[in-house]
C-alpha cells in the first residue's frame, strides 16, 4: 500500500516536472546561462591579443571614468522622470477607462493606448522623427500657426526623449492601473466624499492607497522598459542622447570590448534591481502582490 502511494507521489512530481520543463529549460538556456557567461566576462581583462586575466579593471574603469558615471546617473534620472510623467499621463486615462467610460467607449480608449504597438518600435520612432525634424510636419505647423517665425528643430532634446519614452510606455502603465482602479468600489469614493472629503484628499487617502500595487507595478515595468530602451533615446536624442544602453551597445559592437560591455550590463542590472527594491520599500508593497498586478 505505502508503495503505491509513493509511486503516485513520484508520478505527480514527474508530471509537474515535465509541465515545467519547457519554461525552466528556456529560462536556463536563454537567460541564466548567458548571464553567467556575461558575469564571467565582466571580470576579465585583455592583456594581449587573445590573452585575458581575471581582474576588476572593467568596474574600475566605470567608477574611475566620470564620463560613464555621468551617463549612468543621467539614464537613471531621466528614466525615473519618464516613469513619473507616464504615471501622471496614464492615471487620468486609466481613471476614465475604469470609472467613467462604459462599454464601447472604454474599449475604444484601450485601443487608443494599444495603437502604438501595432507598428514596430523602429517604425514608430522614425515616424516621430519625420514629425519633429526641422523640415517635418510639426515645425511647419508651428510656423503656419504663427507660433514660431522659422521652423525649429524639435528633435535631439531631452524633452523629445521623454515624450518618446512616455508614449512608448503608456500602455504598460495604463493596464495595471485600470486593473487596480476597477477593483476600487465606487462606494468608497462616495463614502469619502460623504464624510467631507474633497477631490485631492480622496485621491490621496483612498484612491492612491488602493491603487498602490497597480501604481508600483506600472512604475516598475515602465522604469525597467525605459532604462533598457535603446532605440527611442538613441534616435530621438541624436548626438546628445547619452543613454546607458547605447554605451553597452557601443562597447560590445563598435569597440569589440565585450568585457567592458558585460560590466556595464551588470551595472545596469544592479541599478534596475536597486530601483525596484527602492520603489517597493517606498510604496510599502510586497513584490509578489505587485507582480500579480503587472
Amino acid at each position: 500500500m505505502p508503495e503505491t502511494a509513493v509511486t503516485a507521489l513520484w508520478y505527480r512530481r514527474l508530471v509537474l516536472a515535465l509541465l515545467l520543463a519547457p519554461a525552466l529549460l528556456w529560462l536556463f538556456a536563454l537567460i541564466i546561462l548567458p548571464h553567467l557567461d556575461l558575469a564571467l566576462l565582466s571580470f576579465r581583462e585583455r592583456v594581449a591579443p587573445r590573452q585575458y586575466v581575471v581582474s576588476l579593471a572593467q568596474y574600475r574603469t566605470f567608477f574611475g571614468e566620470p564620463l560613464y558615471w555621468h551617463v549612468f546617473v543621467r539614464t537613471a534620472l531621466l528614466s525615473a522622470l519618464a516613469t513619473a510623467l507616464t504615471l501622471l499621463v496614464a492615471f487620468p486615462i486609466a481613471w476614465i477607462i475604469a470609472k467613467l467610460a462604459r462599454g464601447r467607449m472604454s474599449a475604444l480608449l484601450f485601443v487608443v493606448c494599444l495603437i502604438p504597438f501595432w507598428v514596430s518600435e523602429t517604425v514608430r520612432t522614425l515616424g516621430w522623427m519625420i514629425l519633429l525634424r526641422e523640415s517635418g510636419v510639426l515645425p511647419a505647423l508651428l510656423v503656419h500657426l504663427g507660433i514660431t517665425r522659422q521652423p525649429v528643430e524639435l528633435l535631439y532634446h531631452d524633452a523629445t526623449i521623454l515624450v518618446g519614452l512616455v508614449y512608448t510606455s503608456l500602455l504598460f502603465m495604463v493596464v495595471p492601473l485600470v486593473g487596480s482602479l476597477e477593483s476600487l468600489d465606487n462606494a468608497l469614493i462616495e463614502a469619502a466624499y460623504d464624510l467631507g472629503g474633497k477631490g485631492w484628499s480622496i485621491l490621496r487617502e483612498i484612491v492612491i492607497p488602493h491603487a498602490a500595487p497597480g501604481i508600483t507595478a506600472g512604475c516598475i515595468v515602465v522604469f525597467m522598459l525605459t532604462l533598457g530602451n535603446y532605440l527611442t533615446p538613441t534616435l530621438l536624442g541624436g548626438k546628445n542622447s547619452q543613454w546607458f544602453t547605447e554605451q553597452i551597445y557601443t562597447q560590445f559592437i563598435t569597440r569589440f570590448n565585450w568585457e567592458q560591455g558585460a560590466a556595464f550590463g551588470f551595472l545596469l542590472l544592479a541599478l534596475s534591481t536597486a530601483m525596484v527594491w527602492l520603489g517597493l520599500k517606498i510604496s510599502g508593497q510586497r513584490f509578489s502582490d505587485v507582480m500579480r498586478r503587472a
Binding site: 468600489d185 462606494a187 468608497l188 462616495e190 463614502a191 469619502a192 460623504d194 487617502e205 483612498i206 492607497p209 488602493h210
Partner: peptide, 11 residues
C-alpha cells in the same frame, strides 16, 4: 450615509 456594503476604507 451608511452604505449598503458599508464602504469601510480597507486601507
Amino acid at each position: 450615509m451608511v452604505f449598503q456594503h458599508l464602504a469601510l476604507f480597507p486601507m
